[in-house]
């Protein structure tokens, strides 16, 4: 029996879709059978991040409405035999699916797949409720910014209220240079405020943009820090004890020295 994991955040634009794509790819690279679901109905995006936008025939709403069988809507990844995508419908809205239907679908999928990853839409309305309905676990993505952390806190509260068994935190887009200068909240600050378990950290990395331009998740890029960060998170999901990446290694010696004075 597999696990249903929802990737959520509250605030938009903090890296939910990128995280879903990379963790799905990472787990499939580790030999797991994975299906990623784009639950952002009306604003389909996971397909382009994975580079699968040209292969879509059916979508999530088609499955739920019985227009097609789940298998028919699943798009097989270009490279990985164990990775599948269920795309969002582009011409419908969030009310096209109900939480009960999502529960039923994810329950069916986890019989066959090791991981069912759901890319949750931003916000706290219907789309969010659909996405978390069948979740065994939630990953909350945030960036070290006031608005993102506030929204993450709200989402954590709602996940608790919905009795999602486990919620873990991913801090994305950390600019360690700014953290060292005291101009951005660091890992400890965000963890202290949100008070939930930390699953992983991802440094700010231009390679993410390059990767999304190409439709090839950054986890394939062995030279990128963000790619390494996603590989670490994948290992942790698989139960391995991997230490947090040392972000100071990515900052110049001068910045590190100067930061001792300016703290």
């Amino acid at each position: 029996m597999g696990k249903v994991i929802v990737v959520t955040s509250g605030k938009g634009g903090v890296g939910k879709t990128t995280t879903t794509a990379n963790l799905g790819t990472g787990l499939a690279l580790a030999g797991k059978k994975v299906v990623v679901i784009d639950a952002d109905i009306g604003l389909r995006n996971l397909d382009v991040i994975l580079g699968l936008e040209n292969r879509i025939v059916y979508n999530l709403v088609d499955i739920v409405e019985g227009t097609c069988r789940p298998k028919q809507a699943m798009i097989k990844d270009k490279k990985l035999g164990g990775l599948f995508l269920i795309p969002a419908a582009q011409t419908r809205d969030k009310s096209a699916v109900t939480p009960e239907q999502m529960k039923e679908l994810t329950a069916k999928l986890k019989e066959e797949f090791d991981y069912v990853l759901i890319d949750c839409p931003a916000g706290i309305e219907q789309g969010f409720k659909n996405a978390i309905a069948g979740a065994d676990e939630a990953y909350v993505v945030t960036t070290p910014e006031v608005s993102a952390v506030r929204d993450a806190d709200r989402i954590i509260g709602m996940l608790e209220a919905a009795e999602v068994p486990l919620t873990r935190l991913v801090i994305n887009r950390i600019k360690q240079e700014m953290v060292l200068k005291g101009e951005m909240m660091g890992i400890d600050d965000v963890v202290e405020i949100l008070a939930i378990d930390l699953l992983g950290i991802i440094p700010d990395d231009g390679e993410i943009v390059v990767a999304s331009n190409k439709g090839e998740p950054v986890i394939y890029n062995n030279k990128s820090f963000a790619g390494q960060a996603y590989r670490n998170i994948t290992d942790r999901i698989e139960g391995k004890d991997v230490p947090l990446m040392n972000l100071n290694d990515q900052v110049s010696v001068w910045t590190r020295l100067f930061s001792r004075w300016s703290k």
């Binding site: 910014e145 506030r150 200068k181 101009e183 600050d189 405020i193």
Partner: peptide, 15 residues
Amino acid sequence: PKSKHVAKERLQLVL
């Protein structure tokens, strides 16, 4: 005061 401390304080209050 560094802006990260300001951010943290404001957040803690609003939360």
